[in-house]
Design a protein around this nucleic acid. Structure first.
Lengths: 346, 346
DNA sequence: AAAGCCGTGGGTATCGTTACCCATTCTGGG
DNA sequence: CCCAGAATGGGTAACGATACCCACGGCTTT
């Protein structure tokens, strides 16, 4: 069914001859460039529609733009990234730009390959979500391609930064747990796989803030950290490790909801209850966290706003802005039923 | 810090002059083409390493390959897709191909735009995960670009199909619930947003199988379906709808784990328990489903194998195979604690 | 009325790589 | 020892779109 003829693709030259104008004229219309009369524009537009012309992206890339924005993210399994992307897509909706995604994985080598892949494909701009690379590495990329970094807090003169205030968020959680009477509060973090300066990575900030707030309340001796990864499996393993200690912690602050879900399973397996025996808090306010049977206390950082902002900043950069911008979003604590007074019965 | 000199990119010509050979020779080495001596190959390789040359993808695309595989998926928030991608990436690991992802969204228009975006970017091959388009639409794409479709069950002569046997999977669940003594078994499906022939879409198959098995056991009168979407929110809304009926269902079969999680919350909110009052089963065996506090009975379809297979088939096609392949994977039922005998106390 | 300017349209070199073809050297068999 | 044919290397015209330039006609300004 349907002719087996693999017809040659329609080019700008076909449009030009069909509209009886030069290829230059067609190109100008496509780019909204200066120097075309209204009549000419209409004729070319009509020819484009009639022939079903679509610009050849690779050919464009040879001379300049690709109208493509590359989005790097560690792995798609973190639902919070989905919320960021929703915001991003919304902001990109009205423009000519298309986002393509690429997974960097959990180690810097894989991330580096992924970034190279984007650069090789001549994307016009790059949005890096929670990248592991050092500031120097990111800046090298940003020197060649407009870049926005979402996550790490290191300000740069070459790229824009967007992040929630992780220090404030982590502080909210720990202060909340302390206010409930907890003293033996443990933390689930992410093992550091990055090179360079990890001080700016969000998991590092969350852990550091946990340590600081504990110390400020004279609880330095109670600090207990299990560093695995921000995944269900990581949270599960970390919680098992923490629950093997004596005395048991009375509260666990997981650096991400995903890890909190794994921890919840481990607590349950140990024959303990949340929040009866152990209070549990996460970070990200993913949709799962709000479901009634889980009802996880967590930190909300509105991924959609972060995504929209990142996209907006990138578009601004593509439009010519060169001064760097640093955008910080204040998080809020969402108290649910997974945290309760220490020692109190459920 | 660092020279502000935006240095020109290293091209094949630079490599050629550095190695004292022609650009043709360099190109041949890059493509492993016939007609290069070992000595020449070594010299060129050395020059490539010394200069840090990277092929310019757009230029390659002008002449043929891009070494890029486009992966279309509805939305990244379904964790099952992550497992598919893990398999895909693993299989693609040793090759020169890079996968880029693009979200199609939940309506056919958005999906169409996304597919166009991939085609415009001259990807060498396309993997569509759970696409909504009609067979005719998919075949039109496949006629121009090697394509593998993961999900819908319609065999085609132009593209390869990979899917789990959704009919077998859904049958396992419904038979399991009936064997436990349930009669009022409800189903949570996905509202159909597709054009063309929806009969082949996986959510249609799961629902149709549910209806068939119910009817085969003389339970046609007990059929109750709430069609929303395979998301937490969709499952939540659907379960609320089902729980408002009288008499209540004693079991709910959600077409996807994600929807089951939402349903779990709704059951909990209604003051009921799982599996005490209501048995609940999902589909996909996501990691969350296995966590102890959820312990969802579900169908395992090994996303990694599906992803690996899809990638393998696509590579075969890129290598020249033109005969279509249809790969079907048998799912298994994972019985956990969310399903129990009807009427029995917890 | 002459000079300059603006608005409009087109010619053409160019981006980096590949594939086709040709030129040269080398090898082995008659 | 000569010649056919294989092995190796290179020249060059594309691929499709863009951006710099120039040409031309009509209008305003002095």
């Amino acid at each position: 069914m349907g002719g087996a003829v693999r017809r040659r693709r329609v080019t700008i030259a076909d449009v030009a001859s069909h509209a009886q104008v030069s290829t230059t004229a067609v190109s100008k219309v496509l780019r909204n460039a200066y120097g075309v009369s209204a009549a000419m524009r209409d004729r070319v537009r009509a020819a484009i529609d009639e022939l079903g012309y679509r610009p050849h992206n690779a050919a464009r890339a040879m001379r300049g733009r690709t109208f493509t924005i590359g989005v790097l993210l560690p792995h798609i399994n973190n639902p919070f990234f989905g919320e960021i992307l929703d915001g991003l897509m919304e902001q990109l909706g009205g423009t000519d730009y298309q986002a393509i995604l690429i997974q960097g994985g959990r180690d810097p080598q894989g991330e580096h390959r992924a970034i190279d892949a984007l650069v090789d494909r001549q994307v016009d701009g790059i949005l890096m979500i929670a990248p592991l690379g050092s500031k120097a590495e990111l800046e090298e990329v940003a020197a060649g391609t407009p870049t926005v970094v979402l996550g790490p807090h290191e300000k740069s003169a070459v790229y824009d930064s967007v992040h929630d205030d992780d220090e404030a968020g982590a502080e909210l959680v720990v202060e909340h747990l302390i206010a409930l009477g907890h003293r033996r509060i443990a933390h689930i973090g992410q093992r550091d796989a990055s090179r360079g300066r990890p001080a700016a990575l969000l998991h590092t900030i969350r852990e550091r803030t946990y340590r600081r707030v504990m110390a400020e309340h004279g609880l330095a001796g109670e600090i207990a950290v299990a560093a695995t990864s921000y995944t269900e499996a990581g949270g599960h393993a970390a919680a098992r490790e923490l629950l093997a200690r004596d005395p048991l912690p009375t509260a666990i602050f997981a650096g991400a909801d995903l890890a909190a879900f794994g921890a919840l399973a481990a607590v349950y397996e140990a024959g303990l209850t949340v929040p009866g025996d152990i209070s549990l808090a996460g970070y990200d306010n993913t949709r799962m966290a709000g479901l009634a049977h889980i009802s996880l206390t967590t930190v909300d950082q509105d991924g959609a706003i972060l995504g929209r902002t990142a996209a907006r900043l990138l578009l601004e950069r593509l439009a010519g802005r060169s001064a760097a911008v640093d955008f910080s979003l204040s998080p809020t604590l969402i108290v649910r039923r997974s945290t309760a007074r220490s020692g109190s019965p459920c």
